[in-house]
Amino acid sequence: MTLLSAEGIEAGIGGRVVCRDLNLTLEPGRVWSILGRNGIGKTTLLLTLAGLRPLKRGHIRLGRDPLDQLTRRTRAQKIGLLFQNPEIQFPTTVNETVMNGRHPWIQRWRDSSEHDQSIVERELNRVGLQDFGSRDLSSLSGGERRRVELAALAAQETELVFMDEPVNHLDLHFQTQLLKEFLAECRAKARAVVMVMHDVNLATRFSDHLLLLYGEGETRQGPVELIANEENLSRLYQHQLHRYQAGDTYFFYPA
């Protein structure tokens, strides 16, 4: 069963083409990473796949339904999105922020239920912020805030999970720990994940498929073991990368 299929899509921003004639299928339990240079359009592609930017060409389907024919609410029940740099303008608490993730599931004229509250607590627990519920978001560090946003995303309980630089602001420990746990949870629940990543080594370590954006609409995709090689990545970043084997794992190091 395919959760999302994109057929021949063209996405772009301004006059720039991000991808041309791209076909992509997201299967349950798969984790994809989008890689590319700064400003190449990774976020644009992610937003387009999430139905938040218009397609220039092609079709996106969720299961059998065309994405653009779903109601906003239904779409939000199926696709969750973590943004890159959410800004805070008004004081808001951690609990309120995570509860926002439940919005698509709460009836329009109703209020959040005990069930919603228990999900919020469960997810705060998972990111180690169970005692932070009534804290003001602006009193948290950048990394703690990122964990709150991840908890909100998890509370949304969507089958498709899109993340724009999920480990932004996180220290090394939380980068690996959260990715490990969060992605294991997604795989266990047969969700499909697409992340925009900056760190090649985190991407190759934690995802099973890569989508490379070369610019000018050119893309390349496939399983990590086939795609992640010196040649592709050096071309991708226009910078020489070397692959080092370390036991049964490997990493890339820029020259």
């Binding site: 999430a50 938040l52 109601t71 939000a76 808001t92 926002n100 993730g101 919005h103 698509p104």
Partner: peptide, 10 residues
């Protein structure tokens, strides 16, 4: 919390 964020939540 943001127009795009609100849109993504339905």
């Amino acid at each position: 919390a943001g127009t795009l964020k609100a849109e993504s939540l339905g």
